[in-house]
Design a protein around this nucleic acid. Structure first.
Lengths: 102, 102
DNA sequence: AAAAACCAGTTTTTGATACAAACCAATTAT
DNA sequence: ATAATTGGTTTGTATCAAAAACTGGTTTTT
């Protein structure tokens, strides 16, 4: 691998995806077609504030879409990965593999 | 994949390795048996201060070892990956793969 | 010989952000 | 009534990646 190739790769890692909690969220959303806030909360074992922040950054970057509805009288929020999100998640891994050990 | 499995994984990502510049450094050091500061500097395209900081964190965590010598009158610093560093780099990737897309 | 420029890094500062704590508004249980 | 739960948001803090500034020399220029 040449110098310029390595340079390209570490600069092309998408920081929005790269954060472990967001990686885990995207992983979950590639398997399940839709999950809600509480599922993510208990699955990931993070605090609510932390989760909300990660979700917002994924939403802002258009990786996920947010659906808000009422179930009876209780608000309920669920998430799906977007088509572009899925594509960029795949692409992220292709890039990342170039940094795997020999 | 179960909830607890996903939780384990995103918590077990080694943050020292996970940073892209350090990933790239470790990748380089798994291929070349020894490289110097300037090689890393030009290869990675980062600033000196930034590189020094990343190197220190890798050294502190015992991933790499640092050799300082004089070449003529000019100081020269080079780096190798340690045995434990190589092992932990491998392990990191095994863990990480669990978060790859389906 | 003095100054300027360069080399090989280290130390310090700054800006961004991951994370947690506290809060809020509504609902449901005791 | 009030305590606990749900489903979050807002605010504060602590970490750390990145850049800038600095150090202690060496080499080159004038």
């Amino acid at each position: 691998m040449s110098k310029s190739q390595i340079n390209q790769i570490h600069n092309n890692i998408d920081r929005v995806i790269h954060e472990p909690v967001r990686l885990a969220i995207l992983k979950i959303l590639t398997s399940a077609k839709e999950v809600d806030f509480n599922f993510l909360l208990t699955t990931l074992g993070v605090t609510k504030g932390n989760l909300a922040t990660h979700i917002k950054s994924l939403e802002t970057a258009d990786f996920i879409e947010v659906k808000k509805e009422f179930r009876g009288k209780i608000p309920h929020t669920s998430y799906r990965i977007t088509r572009t999100g899925r594509r960029r998640f795949q692409k992220y891994w292709e890039n990342l593999k170039a940094l795997a050990p020999e």
